[in-house]
Design a protein around this nucleic acid. Structure first.
Lengths: 338, 338
DNA sequence: GACACAAATGACAGCGCTGTCAATTCGCTA
DNA sequence: TAGCGAATTGACAGCGCTGTCATTTGTGTC
């Protein structure tokens, strides 16, 4: 039979309420008592019943992770975030629920309301690109559900979550190319209204400006974060009279597309062309030559965002926008200009 | 304030227990009463409190989806299954929880036990490759937790879940190549102990045998389901004196690797070499030429598996191993033999 | 050593629902 | 029309925990 809080109380010779206090890490329990109770819990392998806690305590011990399954960023990215969020939740004995939502769809808000009404999450984690969807944020605020964002585009004071300095990372990537002697560097941009696209483009510009190189508009080509769009963009670049000697794509999928297109044109990477991307998806390591890229610690970001959220949920702090570092993964697709 | 079952009861002039009966779709409620109660629920937008139901009813209304995050199959595949499972759970107002588990890790069983002890899922959905992990199945049986599998390798009578006839699909794929006039057809095998690898290899052999073609062992190369292993495998094939005119890779990632390697060797796809894969991952459509492959309806499979499981959980049926169809996605990477 | 006050602990009701079992109503038969 | 079994409905306790508030114990002061 299941071990209940009452059983632990009896074993530790205290009242159930005191065990509850220990369980919830409340104040006003003497060290001595606390130790005794903890020992009893341990030895009996006590597992609090989440539903009972939730029913009596008016909170759900539930974190919902919301994502957009419409125009999905790379699903490996989401999967990594999900794993990180899950890990954080596990550590605090919260459970996690995932919710695909279709941004811009009519029933977006209705489905969000259903989630809240049905499951009462204590908090939600938002992933790109729905970190900044105004109707969503408004509704969460109204419902009093705290939220943390992974890579929010906006950066108000009240925002909690995690970000990476993508602009700085993009700049570092381009500076790597500059250090290799490249001067004619192209950039394949991502979907226009994603924060990621803006920051990476800004970093590209910043690096060029700092190096005193005037931007050549024909070298900045629109893409859409997909492999196919990378191929298209590269074809445009390769059709130029003066081809670039390096291409910085705003994500790895597009970079792979660029490398693919290079194959079509008989352009050798990295000998004739340096290519680099952003994100460090598994494919990046598998490509040949292996892709130079920026590593986003997605898993860690998911975890940190969830930890920030839990701080707020548990009333420990008011949360903040944490920042994580990036790392340049210099591999074999970039080389000194011929 | 929240609408409770009691409020609905009052509105419908019945006892709370009767509302509960309607809510749980129990027998012995007159049609008239049922209608009245349903109408009241609807008009008051009643949402049962999951924790209260769970606590009083001794069930959790929770389905856990278990996956292996160690040697992960393509994460898009898992993401699709996850979406399908979620959809099924939503329809029946069950909630879903995801659990990454590291197969063969020491604490596998401990973590599984923790899941069961902490959350009491009413059932679990197993995804490849942990559909047939004996210690796992044993533990679930002991704990009395029903489970459904997506593409289980084993096919006992008692197994419930969903499968696709992968052998048949692989055979169809190879027959497509045969119909294009290919005779020297290579196969890149997946990880040895995955059911998927065995079935696809079996289908390959079956098709060749049916066409009266003796299998040439050098044309069957070991891979590991990754892009990189596809590249490796292809290099071996291209080093042969008598190269194949077509390569059937056991999944799309490896097929992409083969195409990549073909580029290295100056082999034009599909003119000099036909390439086909299996799974229809997003990349398949993005490659150039677009990859001919087999579409696995992963999302649908996840949904069906979960539906089977819910049938069992709700005592509606004893569940079965459903089967879904495949479709050959003939695109541009396969062509008539020169 | 008596007193005031804070810290620690406990008693008890109740969160929103369902299981159990008793009570009532209904539809037939004799 | 009385009587009987089946269908329908309801009363009530209790699932395992926590909130509220009362009670007890400890601590420091003069």
């Amino acid at each position: 039979m299941r071990v209940r809080l009452e059983d632990v109380a009896r074993a530790a010779s205290v009242s159930p309420k005191t065990v509850s206090r220990v369980l919830n890490d409340e104040a006003n329990v003497s060290d001595d008592t606390r130790q005794r109770v903890l020992a009893a819990m341990q030895s009996m392998d006590y597992r609090p019943h989440p539903s009972a806690r939730s029913l009596a305590g008016h909170r759900s011990f539930l974190v919902a992770m919301l994502y957009d399954n419409n125009d999905n960023p790379a699903s490996t990215y989401l999967a990594e975030i999900q794993d990180g969020v899950l890990e954080a939740c596990d550590e605090h004995r919260y459970s996690m629920m995932v919710r695909p939502l279709r941004m811009r769809s009519d029933d977006f808000i209705r489905r969000l309301d259903a989630l809240i009404a049905d499951h009462h999450p204590d908090g939600v984690v938002l992933t790109p690109p729905i970190t900044d969807y105004a109707p969503l944020l408004k509704r969460l605020r109204e419902a009093g559900v705290p939220h943390a964002s992974v890579s929010p585009a906006h950066r108000g004071k009240a925002i909690i979550g995690v970000r990476m300095d993508e602009q700085q990372a993009a700049r570092a990537m381009v500076e790597h190319l500059l250090a290799l002697g490249h001067r004619r560097i192209a950039h394949v941009v991502g979907i226009a209204d994603h924060g990621a696209s803006r920051w990476r483009l800004a970093g590209y510009r910043e690096a060029l400006a700092a190096a005193g190189i005037a931007e050549d508009p024909v070298l900045v080509v629109q893409g859409a974060f997909t492999f196919g769009s990378g191929v298209e963009a590269a074809r445009k670049l390769f059709a130029l009279k003066k081809r670039p000697s390096a291409v910085f794509a705003a994500n790895d999928d597009m970079a792979a597309g660029v490398m693919w297109a290079a194959g079509e044109y008989g352009i050798k990477v990295p000998h004739d062309l340096s290519v680099c991307g952003f994100d460090d998806i598994p494919l990046a390591r598998q490509l040949w030559p292996a892709l130079t890229t920026v590593r986003q610690p997605a898993r860690e970001m998911g975890k940190l965002a969830a930890l920030q959220l839990l701080e707020v949920v548990r009333g420990r702090s008011s949360g903040r926008l944490a920042q994580v570092g990036f790392s340049l993964e210099v591999r074999d697709s970039t080389a000194r200009v011929p």
